[in-house]
Design a protein around this nucleic acid. Structure first.
Length: 434
RNA sequence: GCGUCGGUGGUAGAGUGGUCAAUUACAACAGACUGUAAAUCUGUCGCCCUUCGGGCUUCGUUGGUUCAAAUCCAACCCGGCGCA
């Protein structure tokens, strides 16, 4: 079955071929939406696709057999975390992190991504101790903005004393979240590490900014990200093939610019002129800003290269993203909320720890293909209450399966020209029926 | 039977005259979580009133001392231990 698909869509890439992206179908309904295939040295990713996050070369709490059950081809790991532990040398000796974590199907390695550590510039830096995250509500943001005004009503440059990342034009100095020791990333070191990690696709080192930052700051951070992008490309070229896998890796830029459409457009345009294989869209913004931000980026990116929306999302986000031309997504949400007792359902997200599920004998998931199909909600509630590890495993597998399948369904809806029909059907049930 | 120690909110367990509706932990009940410092964090947790706040009833039972008692005294009930 898989072989047929590959034959239909073109021969496998050789290890040293450049990443190829084929658009299989453009939506007749949403002008920017498309279905495609990313061909990597380790297999294909049919897009739109959701890429599970395995930050430390493990998809948290999933046990080995479940990896097959969730229906994903690719996985995304993190440079900063694997650099700190176990260190890129050890990953390299495993032949890359895919091999290390045994991310395989039918004994052959599957496609992999690595993030550059750029998000940690934000999460350990500007966002540290502020309560600001990847997605903020506009109310919480205006509240935060008030908090950082000084007595004269002027905006203070927010900088927490115990921030764990400090930025300068050349790079970022991090404190290890493990032992507090100091480490430095530059665009060059990020690329070097990512070559040792050996992902098929990796991201340029960028600065993810806080939505609380002023426009002036967003401009300077964006320009810094652009300079770093060029340095990443140069270092990638200098290094050649991956030291871990011997394969040619693809490098994706990361578009920044905060919530400003003009900056986003500029960032997309500038980065499009560099020789990247694809593009990520980064940043932290409100849900309302996401539509226009994504759109102002994708409209200014080359059509024939894949676009990845970093760190997104929730069910509604996939419809927005795909409608505006996103091909791949990654997000920690399915696994994180799973560990915290929440599971996705067609009728919305549910908290399995709510007392009503103690006696709920219905299956966690009515989809026969889902690894959670054969367990009752009552059982899962019991596993959580008794703090059994299996609780997280079942819930994570379910959430990933749910999200991966949702994005696959969106792909199919494009192929069948039923994107808006599916969007309406899904979202009405998900948000209204609750 | 005698002696001794003890009985506190769902549980364990602080508190030994006023700042106590009672520390804390657990349980319980909710909420949050979006390129993972996250198997984490937050809130509620005697009853009633719409909130600030106010009212009411609680620390084995009953009675007492005191302006004031979970806290002191007495009797009783119950439990652990020791001796008969």
């Amino acid at each position: 079955m898989k072989e047929e698909v590959k034959e239909k869509e073109g021969a496998l890439l050789s290890k040293t071929d450049r990443l190829r992206f084929d658009i299989v179908k453009r939506s007749k309904e949403a002008t920017l939406a498309r279905a495609g295939v990313i061909h990597t040295p380790h297999g294909d990713v049919e897009t739109p696709a959701f890429i599970p996050v395995g930050t430390k070369a493990t998809v948290k709490s999933l046990y080995v057999d479940m990896i097959k059950g969730i229906g994903s081809e690719a996985v995304l790991a993190n440079t900063y975390h694997l650099y700190l532990q176990p260190g890129q040398e050890i990953v390299k000796r495993h032949g890359g992190f895919a091999n290390m974590m045994n991310w395989k199907s039918n004994n052959s390695l599957l496609p992999t991504f690595t993030d550059s550590g750029g998000f940690q510039v934000f999460s350990l830096g500007a966002a540290f101790d502020t309560g600001v995250s990847k997605i903020a509500t506009s109310e919480s943001l205006s509240q935060k903005q008030k908090e950082i005004l000084d007595d004269t009503g002027k905006k203070k440059i927010k900088s927490s004393n115990n921030q764990m990342a400090k930025i300068d034009d050349d790079g970022v100095t991090f404190k290890s979240y493990i032992d507090g020791s100091s480490h430095r990333f530059t665009p060059e070191t990020s690329v070097q590490i990512q070559h040792d990690l050996g992902a098929d696709i990796f991201f340029a080192f960028d600065e993810c900014t806080s939505p609380l930052a002023s426009k002036d700051y967003q401009i300077s951070a964006m320009n810094r990200t652009h300079h770093w992008a060029k340095r990443c490309i140069d270092e990638h070229e200098r290094l050649g093939l991956s030291a871990a896998t011997g394969a040619r890796q693809a490098i994706f830029a990361v578009v920044q610019g905060g919530a400003y459409e003009d900056l986003r457009k500029e960032s997309a345009t500038v980065l499009s002129c560099m020789d990247f294989d694809g593009f990520g869209i980064g940043g932290s913004f409100t849900k309302e800003d996401m539509h226009k931000t994504v759109r102002s980026v994708t409209e200014n990116l080359p059509e024939g290269k894949p676009r990845h929306l970093l760190g997104i999302g929730e069910p509604i986000d996939f419809f927005i993203g795909v409608e505006y031309g996103i091909d791949t997504f990654d997000c920690v949400s399915p696994t994180r909320i799973a560990r915290h007792g929440n599971i996705y359902s067609k009728e919305g997200r549910i908290n399995i720890l709510n007392s009503k599920y103690k006696n709920d004998m219905s299956p966690i998931c009515d989809d026969q293909d889902c690894p959670a199909h054969d367990y009752t909600k009552s059982y899962l509630a019991h596993l959580y209450r008794s703090e059994e590890i299996l609780a997280s495993s079942i819930a994570s597998a379910h959430n990933l399966h749910f999200i991966i399948k949702l994005v696959k369904n969106i792909r199919n809806s494009i192929l069948e020209d039923k994107f808006f029909e599916y969007k309406k059907e899904f979202l009405e049930q998900y948000y209204i029926s609750k």
